[in-house]
Computed example of a mutant assay.
Amino acid sequence: MRVAVIDLGTNTFHLIIAEKAGKELEILYKTNVPVKLGEGRINDNIIIPAAFERGINCLKDFSQIIADYQADKIRATATSAVRSAENGKDFVDAVNERTGITIETITGDEEAELIYQGVKLSGAITDLSLIMDIGGGSVEFILCDTETLIWKKSYNIGAARLMQQFFKSDPINDGDKNAILFHIQNQLTDLFNICEKHQPKMLIGSAGAFETFAELIIRENYLKADINTAKTFAFNFDDYIASSIKLINATHKERAEMPGIIPLRVDMIVIAALITNYVLGRSKINSLTLSTYDLKMGVLASLI
């Protein structure tokens, strides 16, 4: 059976086509496109016309690729940017009319569940863990152990939202940093209550920004790891902290010149580092692992 999964993120649209033969799963095709659906007015809950058209054009291309691969099943899921936008349904309807793709707009809870299923497939969960997925529109947290999903929640504190609202300086100044951290602190009260009760031992970063953190550290330390093929990557905690502080203190130009940062993440990686460091500190976690498997792999698992 051949399946296609489309993940319509706030920043990036992903397409995976895979085939199941017996118990084995083979990835036949994989791509991502920086559509930036949340550009400009995500906090006003609007998909601006230019982003609207970029999204449709990307999905036209995806539709053709899926047809070429003759997939038996297709599942397309939309997350924060579409579910919170006043014209989100207009976008879903326009995509269906112009590309034939039916989009399922999932809730934050459903998103967190699928992220958990994807991370679980990677084998990253080896202890009581807090999974964190930093998207452009929302951030999902999942508390789990090797057997059980204990608690999950989605928060509207994604990197694109916080960047548009608070990130006005270069390099980011103390005023902007403090505004971001104050906002995060107010939003995540129940998360830290849960962490205080259960005391997770590890933070598992789900793909996205955590792949960028890993890529920077791999290149800087000449490690042999390859996150394009690895399912997981265990960070040296001190290396991560040093790298994150360097990113936060750098200018836009300095970050843009760092090998390993894709253009889309040059500024959003600062937000990701601030959120991650705050969560690590408040939850007293000093172990960090990357899972390259995330929501789209969870969706893939649900199909096969």
Rank of each mutant, 00 (worst) to 15 (best):
I245D: 15
I269Y: 04
I217H: 09
D267S: 05
L188S: 06
T229L: 01
D267P: 03
S244T: 04
K246Q: 11
F192R: 00
S244P: 00
F235C: 11
A272C: 06
A225F: 08
S206I: 08
Y240I: 05
M258H: 09
I227V: 07
I271D: 05
A214P: 00
T232R: 11
M268H: 09
F233T: 09
L247D: 00
I262G: 01
Y240A: 08
Q199I: 04
A209D: 09
T251E: 04
K253P: 00
G208C: 02
L247N: 01
R265M: 12
S243E: 14
H198A: 10
T251S: 14
I227R: 01
H252T: 15
I248D: 02
L264Q: 08
P200Y: 07
K201N: 09
N228M: 12
A225K: 10
I241A: 04
L216P: 09
R219T: 14
L191P: 03
A273G: 00
A207P: 07
R219A: 13
A214Q: 01
K197G: 07
R219Q: 14
I262T: 11
F192V: 02
A250D: 08
M202Q: 15
E215P: 08
K224A: 14
T189P: 06
L274S: 01
I194Q: 15
K224F: 12
A272G: 05
L203E: 05
Q199T: 10
Y222D: 15
T232N: 13
L264P: 03
H198L: 11
A207I: 10
I262F: 01
I269S: 04
I271E: 07
N249M: 06
P200K: 08
A242R: 14
F237Q: 01
K201S: 07
I271K: 08
A209P: 06
K201W: 02
I261N: 02
D226Y: 08
D239W: 09
E196S: 15
I218S: 09
A272T: 04
E211G: 13
